[in-house]
Amino acid sequence: MMKQQKLRVALILPAYNEAAVVGDVIKNLHKVFASSAYDASIILVDDGSVDGTARVAEQAGANVIRHILNTGSGGATATGLAYAREQGFTLAATLDADGQHDPHDVLKGLDEQLSTSADLLIGSRLMGDSTEHMSLVRRFLNRSASLVTFVLFGVNVTDSQSGLRIFSKNALENLRWRTTGYEFCSEMLWRARQANLVVTEYPIKTIYTDHSISKPNGQSSWNAFNIVKTLIRQRIVELFSE
C-alpha cells in the first residue's frame, strides 16, 4: 500500500530575546508534531536578539533566520512567511516564541484549516471559556483592539491581536502587510479582506507565563496606544485603498 505523504507545514516563531524559554518551546513543538500527520519544520526568525536566542533555537533543532536589524514582530513574521513561501510549504502557522501557545492548539488549528478550508485561521483567546486566565485589563485591551480593528478596517473578529495564526497556501501567496510592529496583527486582517481571503477563528487556551508577563519588549498595556495610533495613521494614509 502506498504511504500517504504528510503535509509540509512551517511553524514560524518570530522571536526577540527569548533565549530563556525558546528552547523548551521548540522541544515541545517537536514532541507534539513528531506523532502528528504533518511534516513540520520549525522556523525561528531571530529579530536581532542579543541574548543568544538564535543559538538556543538551533541547539533545540529549529531552522533559524537571523534578522540583520531589529524590525519588530510584524517584520519577523513577514520574513518567516516569505521563507515558507519560497520553500514551498503547503501550510504555515505562526505562534509566539515565549511559550504563550499550547502546541496542541497549533495542531488543532491545522486540522481545523483542512476541514474548513479557511485561508487565515486565528486562534482566539477570547472565544469560549478560555478567558479565565487572562487579567481583566488584558481582556479589556484585547477586546478594544478588536473593536478598533472593526471600526478602522471593517473586520469583525474576537481576538485581533492573537499571535497564533494558520495560513493556507493561498494566504501564503497573497498576504502582505506594511507595518512591522505589533500593529501588523490588525493590518494583516485588513489585507486579508482586501485580498478576498476567508478569515475565521477557533478557540485556544490562554497561557500567560511569568516570562511573558515580565518581558519589557512585549505587548504591554501601554503599547496598545502606540498600536492604535499607527493603525489610525495607516488607515488615513490609505483612505481610498479599499
Binding site: 533559524v64 533566520i65 537571523r66 534578522h67 540583520i68 524590525t71 517584520g75 520574513t79 521563507y83 506594511r178
Partner: peptide, 13 residues
Amino acid sequence: VQDLHQELSIRLS
C-alpha cells in the same frame, strides 16, 4: 528597504 532586509536575512541564513 523592508523587502531587501527580509531577502538578505533569508539568503545570509
